[in-house]
Structure formats: structure tokens, C-alpha cells
Computed example of a mutant assay.
Amino acid sequence: MNTNEVEIVLYGAETLCPSCVNLPSSKETFEWLEAAIARKFPEQPVKMTYVDIHQPSGDSEKLNFAKRVIEEDLFYPVVVIKEKIVGEGNPRLKTIFAELEKYGYKAI
């Protein structure tokens, strides 16, 4: 069982990405993802962080990545684990879970 906390950062915005019509909002995706990870990897520490790309806060790494989402027209929400993009627009749980398993997370 994993005891090292991995941070999952979701970069999003209040408004939907123009290419993401009919998808949940960034905040809804964040909440859905948080719940899905808690169910799949119970009692294993995961730090979930939401960063608004239009009003970013946090360390310089997060501020720079938020700027990159806008400048590179990435489909948001963008899900990042340890500086690796693991989901864009409509993130897939399978991809995110596989990345967490690389860091020692065990599915229950």
C-alpha cells in the first residue's frame, strides 16, 4: 500500500473550453476525479489541487503551467501528475489510475 502522497493538479477554468461543449465543468471534473480516486485507492494519500488557469495561485511551477495551458490552447481541464499530462479535456480514469500505480498506489 502506498504511503507517499502524490499530488494531482487539475488546471481548469470557470468557463468551458470551447472544444469541450457538453462536458462537465473543470470543477465538476475535479470533484468526480477526487471521488473516483478515493474509491479506487482508499486510505492512500493523494493530494488533489485545483488551479484556475485565469486566476492561478500556488508555486511558480503551477503559475507557469497555467499560462502554458492558455498559450498552447490545451483542452482543459488538464490533469497533471508529477509534471506529466495524464488527461486533457475529458480525462480518462484508466490513464490516471495507471499513472498512480506507477508510484506505488494499489487498487482495492
Rank of each mutant, 00 (worst) to 15 (best):
M1E: 09
N4R: 05
E5M: 14
V6L: 13
V6K: 01
V6M: 10
I8G: 00
I8Q: 00
V9D: 00
V9E: 01
Y11M: 12
Y11T: 12
Y11E: 10
Y11G: 08
G12H: 11
A13I: 02
A13W: 07
A13L: 07
L16Q: 05
L16K: 08
L16Y: 03
C17P: 05
C17S: 09
P18D: 05
P18G: 08
P18I: 10
P18T: 08
S19R: 04
C20T: 03
C20V: 01
C20Q: 09
C20I: 02
V21S: 02
V21D: 00
L23G: 01
S25Q: 04
S25W: 07
S26E: 04
K27M: 15
K27A: 13
T29F: 12
T29D: 00
T29Q: 05
F30C: 07
W32N: 08
W32G: 01
L33R: 02
E34Y: 09
E34H: 11
A35S: 15
A35R: 15
A35D: 15
A36D: 11
R39G: 03
F41W: 10
F41I: 04
P42E: 07
E43F: 09
E43R: 03
E43W: 02
E43D: 13
E43I: 01
Q44S: 03
P45A: 12
V46E: 08
M48C: 09
M48L: 14
Y50C: 11
Y50V: 13
V51Q: 02
D52V: 00
H54S: 04
Q55I: 02
P56V: 11
P56T: 11
P56R: 11
S57Y: 14
S57G: 15
S57L: 13
G58L: 14
G58E: 14
G58N: 10
D59K: 13
K62P: 02
L63R: 12
L63I: 15
N64P: 01
F65L: 08
A66R: 10
K67E: 09
K67T: 10
R68Q: 12
V69L: 06
I70L: 12
I70Q: 09
E71T: 08
E71N: 11
E71D: 13
E71W: 08
E72M: 06
D73C: 02
L74H: 05
F75N: 02
Y76F: 13
Y76L: 03
P77Q: 03
P77D: 04
V78N: 03
V78Q: 03
V79C: 11
V80T: 03
I81P: 01
I81V: 11
K82A: 10
E83N: 14
K84V: 14
K84S: 07
I85L: 03
V86P: 01
V86C: 04
E88N: 04
E88M: 12
E88I: 08
N90V: 01
R92N: 06
R92E: 14
R92V: 12
R92L: 12
R92T: 04
R92Q: 13
L93F: 09
K94G: 03
K94F: 07
T95L: 13
I96A: 12
I96H: 07
I96C: 09
A98P: 04
E99A: 15
E99G: 05
L100F: 15
E101I: 01
K102P: 06
K102N: 14
K102E: 15
K102W: 07
Y103W: 14
Y103D: 07
G104K: 05
G104P: 04
K106N: 04
A107D: 10
